[in-house]
Design a protein around this nucleic acid. Structure first.
Lengths: 152, 152
DNA sequence: TATTGTTATACTCTATAACTATA
DNA sequence: TATAGTTATAGAGTATAACAATA
């Protein structure tokens, strides 16, 4: 609507929505299996680490908002990361209620080494079975997916 | 690598892999919240229904393989659908161990009416915030994502 | 009174293990 | 012995509710 390319060519949104639900679910289940098999950083853990890396130090509440989960859930995830020394916290000097979390050198190393089993497995599959044009398509799609997740 | 467009333009597979992991996780968590709020057909349930609709009657094991989960997990999902009359089973006349599941009229209606809350929410978000070009990109991406899930 | 964070508890989805029935 | 399916149990990830501390 309002885009001249729309005429007779715009895909049915409901169809796309349904296809997205199916494909995202499939991929997610697949990724979960891989993590379970390797016993390294879990999915929500590496999401939190990546967030801290990309956005810098943040409070648990901020991270929870960004990752679309409850503060309590994020607290549980962060607790595990803290116990293993991958993140650390310092109190906010201006607001005694808040704690600011940051990546430790060990946490940075985990990200830098791309140690995540599932990332490597995806990367291998991408390299083996996808053309570079398809890779570009996927890359573009990830941005759309993130936007979708934020505005749903 | 064999594609002339690769030179200097192929995205880093590891980067794409990581971005996929993040965006798929985000979207999935978001979808889960919606389902929880509406209390209708759950995510795995509607995945199973869609499978039966697209592929016709199938055994629990086949469905589990297609959805990348264990037969036991699929059994639990199917049990719920059966109890609500959305799918039904008939014994395989050739092999007494197997049961063939099929969509009941009620199950077909659920799919036909796109009653799924999350599908409608996605569709709304797509309509409101995405151009038709972006919709086509997403549509193309879902096929790539399914292929990826199958070959990972 | 509102906000940040924690603790306790429960639910959903999936997994593994052990079992039954049929092949 | 192998395969299809079920039952029982456990674990990961997330949620809600109730609480403490600070603003």
């Amino acid at each position: 609507m309002g885009h001249d390319l729309d005429v007779g060519k715009g895909p049915d949104v409901v169809e796309v929505a349904d296809a997205l639900r199916v494909s995202v679910g499939l991929l997610r289940r697949r990724l979960r299996q891989i993590k379970a098999a390797e016993g390294e950083v879990t999915l929500p853990e590496s999401a939190a680490l990546a967030r801290l890396d990309r956005g810098g130090p943040a409070t648990p509440s901020e991270l929870a908002r960004l990752e679309q989960i409850s503060p309590q859930s994020m607290g549980a995830t962060l607790g595990g990361l803290e116990a293993r020394g991958l993140v650390a916290r310092r109190p906010d000097p201006k607001d005694g209620r808040r704690a600011v979390l940051y990546l430790t050198p060990a946490g940075q190393a985990v990200l830098r080494e791309r140690r995540s089993g599932s990332t490597q497995r995806i990367a291998q599959a991408l390299e083996a079975g996808f053309t570079s044009a398809e890779l570009r398509q996927l890359q573009a799609a990830t941005q759309l997916l993130e936007r979708l997740a934020e505005h749903i």
